[in-house]
Design a protein around this nucleic acid. Structure first.
Lengths: 195, 195
DNA sequence: ATGGGCATGTAACGAGTTACATGATTTT
DNA sequence: AAAATCATGTAACTCGTTACATGCCCAT
C-alpha cells in the first residue's frame, strides 16, 4: 500500500514544480520552491524530500539515479502522466481562502500599548523588508524573462511587485499618521493620506 | 508550577483583546477575535479557551464567575497588571516576518496547466471575496467610529480596506491579461495595465 | 583545514485545527 | 419543534517546522 500523498497546497506545489519539463533533484527542487516565498510559504528542505517520496509511491512522479561526475550523484525526479493529471484536477477543485498572518498589523492593532517610536520602527522595518522583496522580485523576473515556459511564474512575480509595492507604500503612509493621539485623524472615512 | 503561556502571536492577540478595558468571557472574546481575520488567522474557539486557561495560570489574567440572569452564567476574564507588562514587552520584541499563503497566486503560477476559463473564474471568485471583506470592513469601521478606545483597531481596519481594495484591483487586472498565450504581454518591465 | 554548496534523510516538536461532547436559553 | 445563540471544554489530528545526523567535493 503506497503512502498517501499529502493533500495540502504545498504538496501540489512540489508536484507542480516538476511540470515545467525539467528533471530535478530534491535539492534543486528546493531552490525553485524558494521562489514561492513571495506569495506562499516555501517548503522546508525536509518536507521536499518526504513529499517527493510520497509522490513517487503514489505514482505521480518517477525518479532515476544520476551518477555525479566529480560531485555526488543525485536522484532526479520527473513528473509522471498521472502526476500531470492530478495537477489538472487540483486546479479544477475549489480554491481555499488566502490566509494572511501580518504581525505588523497585529501590533498596530494594539498600538495603544506601544511606545510610539517603537511603532514607527516596526513600520519602517516592514517597509524596508518589502523593498528588499521588491528587489529580489526584480532579479527573479530578470531570470525568467525570455523564457516562455515561465510566463505564468513571471506574471505572478509581476503581481508580487505590485503587492509589495502596495505594502511598502501603506507602511509609509500609516507611519506618517502616527502617533494617533488625535482621534480627528480618523474622521475622514477614506483617510486623509490616500484614495 | 503554572502552564507556560504559548508564545505565538495568537497567544498575545488573545491577551491583547483584554487590554481595551473590558471584562470578556471566552465566548465574547472569540467574537472580538474574529475581527482579526482580516489580517491574521482568527483563533478557533477551542484555542481561546485553552489560551485563557494558560494565561490565567501564568498570572497574566484574572477571572471571576458572573451568574447569568436568565441565561447561563459565564466566567469573565480581565487583564492583570502582569499581563499588560507582558504585552508591552511583546511589542518591544522583534517582529516575525509576515507570512502570506495565497492559493490563487499559487494556481496562477501553474497557469500553464489550467483551463483558461477556470483561471478566470478563480480570479473572479477571489476578487468577489475581497469585495465582501471590504464591505465587512466598512461595517467594522462603522462600529468602531466615535470610540477613541479603538483608534488603532480602526486604523488597521482602514489599512485593511486599502489592502483588499488592492487585491481586488490586482485580480481584475490580471484577469484582463489572460489567457497568456502571447508572451509579448510580459515585455514591458512594468506591465501594460498598471504602474 | 575551514567553510560553503551539494545531497539526503529522520525525529521531535509546535501551533494550531477539526471533531466531539454537553447543555441551557432564546428565537423562529 | 427546530434552530440559533450563549457557553465551555477535551481529544485527535494535520501540516508543517526545527534540530539532528551524515558525508562528499570545492574554493579560500
Amino acid at each position: 500500500m503506497g503512502q498517501e500523498p499529502g493533500r495540502g497546497d504545498l504538496s501540489y506545489a512540489v508536484l507542480g514544480l516538476l511540470s515545467f519539463g525539467r528533471e530535478l533533484s530534491g535539492y534543486e527542487l528546493k531552490q525553485w520552491a524558494d521562489n514561492l516565498r513571495f506569495f506562499y510559504a516555501a517548503p522546508a528542505m525536509s518536507l521536499v524530500y518526504t513529499e517527493l517520496a510520497r509522490l513517487q509511491s503514489a505514482g505521480l512522479v518517477t525518479s532515476r539515479e544520476v551518477p555525479g561526475e566529480g560531485r555526488r550523484g543525485a536522484r532526479v525526479y520527473r513528473l509522471a502522466p498521472a502526476g500531470e493529471a492530478e495537477l489538472r484536477t487540483w486546479l479544477s477543485r475549489p480554491v481555499p481562502p488566502a490566509t494572511l498572518r501580518h504581525p505588523v498589523a497585529l501590533r498596530l492593532f494594539f498600538g495603544h500599548l506601544a511606545d510610539p517610536d517603537r511603532l514607527q520602527a516596526v513600520l519602517e522595518e516592514h517597509r524596508a523588508r518589502c523593498e528588499e522583496l521588491l528587489a529580489e522580485l526584480d532579479a527573479v523576473r530578470e531570470g525568467l524573462r525570455d523564457d516562455a515556459t515561465f510566463r505564468y511564474p513571471a506574471l505572478v512575480a509581476q503581481w508580487g511587485q505590485r503587492y509589495y509595492g502596495g505594502e511598502a507604500a501603506a507602511a509609509a503612509d500609516i507611519a506618517a499618521l502616527l502617533p494617533l493621539d488625535d482621534p480627528a485623524d480618523l474622521e475622514d472615512p477614506a483617510g486623509p493620506a490616500w484614495r
